[in-house]
Design a protein around this nucleic acid. Structure first.
Lengths: 283, 283
DNA sequence: ATAATTATGTCAAATTTATTACAGAAGGCA
DNA sequence: TGCCTTCTGTAATAAATTTGACATAATTAT
């Protein structure tokens, strides 16, 4: 039984001042009761003890209890529809790792998107689509795979995509090829790697634009970047999840594809032809 | 400018504890801040002064002012007829690529999980957790990154993880090391690669257990496998999405971790020690 | 390795808020 | 009208929340 219902059922037992309050409460429910008891009393043009008495008549022990009840109602009302997919996988108990994981992942996605600045996203798309800039990609121990994935896809879209070697000893050498205005895409999640930070510092001094993919705690590299993406990586396991990171990578690629369609389409066609010729791929 | 936006724009100026708080706040916004400052602090697992400082950093004179601002927002939100839960990203039209993508991805996840046989999943976990079997991993042009990712994580969990070389010319040679009863994990999505099919055939003849990650149209390799996962890869772009594939990989890893915890925990500890020793990683 | 700096929590003071007691006001009834 | 009952607000009190000062822990720089 909601607070509003309680009020309605006992309305006839109320005194005039209490009805005044009840009306105010129902009129802009449940906002009126968000603040202090004094604010509510003032809104309804009654005294605080009147509010007190009304609340007790409704069965609450005090104002805090009343407010908590309203808060809980609000939470229910505003809770996201996604949460209703309690478990997604078929015939599997909710405790199964698959369901635990899917809950985590959707939470991560939702939260990451809430924090994401869309303008920043669009800016990065523009930056990476600028054919005058070469793009250099580097990842860490875990994130190496994402750097690889990004490179594979970007190479189809445009030219001048370079992946930094896996061994950090070779980075200074590679940095000679990186010119001012080029873009360096760095993947760095905890535990943050010292070599990557050093690389970012050097690149920043050379006026290289840095785009960073990191986690919700932000790699220290953040301070050298022009744009960064913070991807939530929480997972019900000892490791972190890269799903949100991959999601963002693919979204970026899709956005770039749209932006660069004329060039992309011809490059794609060429690629298809090459595949057909080599016969490595089945139709 | 909403409180959420303020948090997002100043997120990188926050200290770790403040970020913890900011995340909690955004995670269930604006419900988390409905109660007292102490409740909020407890939820975010920080102290009340930390909440205090964060709020002041955001430009509020104190907690009551902060809460009033949130209340005002809530009033606006609840009186606003537009359902803001329709799209996930903030302040972005529903047509933005981010929202299109998130819709696709959640659909892919839902559908893939519906089709997934949980028993098969558990069987694969058992298979990969069997320390008597060596594990060999191979991916194709696009899926190479996933093979890499799987290998990186499995190597932490257990020994005898091998990645097949990128060049398919070396595969027959590598196959000599693969013994009967070993597991070969193959990633193959369209366009399916002829070399991978050949490899699967050979491996099958040698009584190697094959676990396949493929898409909803199923790679021809499926007929040689003991278990396969069909991951929906639909995306609103010219390319396919690997998000579901990554999701399954991580779920597998999490499940294996749980199963092999004794061994995993000691390996993890050793790994941490090595990291600390090399100093390559920041704390 | 050590010092300086920064970050964070504990605790106590200050402020605000909720609650209670009580007195006066309003309305009903002889 | 005058008395009684019920209602309502003022003001004092109790409880709680918020805020600030400070010490300790953690981090960073030297």
């Amino acid at each position: 039984m909601t607070v509003a219902e309680k009020i309605r059922t006992r309305f006839d037992q109320f005194t005039p001042a209490e009805r005044e309050l009840a009306n105010t409460l129902i009129a802009n429910y449940p906002m009126a009761a968000l603040g202090t008891i004094m604010e509510l009393a003032h809104q309804a043009k009654v005294s605080t003890p009147t509010v007190m008495r009304t609340i007790k008549k409704l069965g609450f022990t005090g104002f805090p209890a009343f407010q908590t009840a309203l808060h809980d109602e609000l939470k229910q009302t505003l809770s996201d529809p996604i949460d209703k997919h309690d478990h997604w996988a078929n015939n599997v108990p909710a405790e199964h790792i698959l369901n635990q994981f899917v809950t985590s992942i959707t939470n991560n996605l939702r939260q990451s998107l809430k924090q994401l600045d869309p303008e920043s996203f669009d800016d990065v798309v523009t930056l990476l689509s600028d054919k005058k800039r070469s793009i250099h990609i580097v990842g860490g121990r875990i994130t190496h795979a994402f750097a690889d994935y990004l490179q594979t896809h970007l190479q189809v879209i445009r030219k001048d995509i370079h992946m930094l070697p896996a061994s950090s000893g070779l980075w200074p050498h590679h940095l000679l090829n990186v010119r001012e205005g080029d873009v360096l895409v760095i993947f760095d999640v905890r535990r943050y790697e010292a070599d990557l930070l050093e690389l970012a510092k050097l690149a920043n001094e050379r006026n290289v634009k840095i785009v960073l993919f990191t986690d919700q705690w932000l790699s220290p590299i953040t301070s050298y970047t022009t744009h960064y993406f913070s991807c939530r990586i929480e997972a019900p396991s000892g490791w972190d999840s890269g799903v949100v990171t991959l999601f963002l990578i693919e979204s970026l690629i899709a956005a770039m594809e749209e932006k660069l369609w004329p060039e992309t389409s011809s490059r794609l066609k060429e690629l298809e032809d090459i595949f057909d010729f080599t016969g490595r791929f089945k139709r």
